[in-house]
């Protein structure tokens, strides 16, 4: 099939199979996403982050933890020799550290999303579905979590659990579920009394089954959009914890911790702290742009864009 005819097949008004209709719909969503160049930049950055994280071992020219010769190779400025971004106080290649740091950053984001989303969904749907005192108790707990600034609460948890990247991930996950719970609860309230939930009850389904099989899938799409929009915040919190010495521990090449260790030399050797700072900035910007773009194409209410909205099952 040539490119032109494949395009026609995808954009056909009369799809011949469900698969064609589905693929055509995805293609159309992609077309409208593509016109948003900011979102495309975001997508590019996030894809780059993923590629770098996966192939870190191949891309990085040096070991991220073991430095070079401490007498001759400390604080080399960018573009000296084959040290693309220079070296730091322990003569480690900064580019290699950034590349390996991408892996840590991606791991933090992914794990937090995987831990916090189910907690938020579970709390939100349960409280919305049962209402009454269950709702009151769960929502007051959520309110307590929401009342603290995210970083402060995460700090408190890490202080209690002990510093380290795993504990930082747990702490960030514990502090990021409340907005998802609120969102899931609101969605649940709108569908809990609908007739198709009654129909499931009529078939003899238990509450757990209705919650898991019927209500959660309906809440999922809005919660997922919210999670993508939150990813930049997660990265910043992780970097903040690293900077304060409570997240990743040296010699792990975590970007926030790298800034913290380079801070002491910022006047004389600016690049040691600046380069990881730029990396954090670029990646969180990328996630924000991507999240905004996704919301525009996926959320039918935000846009007059009805044709992308209809065929999502």
């Amino acid at each position: 099939m040539t490119v032109a005819s494949r395009r026609e097949w995808l954009l056909s008004d009369r799809p011949e199979s469900r698969r064609q209709a589905r693929l055509g719909q995805i293609y159309r969503t992609w077309l409208s996403f593509k016109t948003n160049w900011l979102a495309m930049i975001g997508l590019g950055i996030v894809l780059l982050l993923c590629v770098v994280a996966v192939f870190a071992d191949v891309i990085a020219p040096y070991d991220p933890v073991i430095g070079g010769d401490l007498r001759t190779e400390r604080f080399l400025p960018p573009f000296t020799g084959d040290h693309l971004l220079g070296t730091d106080d322990l003569a480690r290649d900064i580019f290699s550290r950034i590349v390996h740091g991408a892996r840590l950053t991606l791991m933090v984001v992914a794990l937090v999303a995987v831990i916090a989303t189910p907690i938020g969904l579970l709390v939100g749907t349960t409280s919305g579905y049962f209402g009454g005192w269950v709702d009151t108790v769960l929502m007051r707990v959520t309110d307590i979590f929401l009342a603290f600034p995210r970083l402060i609460l995460a700090l408190a948890f890490v202080a209690a659990l002990g510093p380290g990247i795993e504990n930082a991930i747990i702490a960030i996950a514990i502090t990021s579920w409340p907005p998802y719970a609120r969102l899931a609860r609101a969605e649940t309230l709108t569908i809990r009394d609908s007739d198709y939930i009654n129909a499931a009850r009529l078939q003899g389904a238990s509450s757990a089954r209705i919650l898991w099989g019927h209500i959660t899938p309906l809440c999922l799409s809005s919660v997922i959009i919210r999670v993508t929009l939150d990813m930049a915040g997660i990265i910043l919190t992780a970097a903040g914890l690293g900077f304060l010495g409570l997240g990743a521990q040296p010699p792990q090449p975590e970007w926030g911790a790298m800034i913290a260790s380079g801070r002491r030399f910022i006047i004389d050797f600016w690049w040691v702290a600046t380069v990881p700072g730029i990396a954090i900035f670029v990646v969180s910007l990328g996630f924000n742009l991507l999240g905004d773009g996704l919301r525009d194409v996926l959320d039918p209410k935000a846009h007059g864009n009805t044709d992308t909205a209809k065929a999502r099952p």
Partner: peptide, 10 residues
């Protein structure tokens, strides 16, 4: 009303 009594995502 079948429109309201069938789950739209199943």
């Amino acid at each position: 009303d079948p429109k309201f009594s069938l789950n739209p995502v199943m």
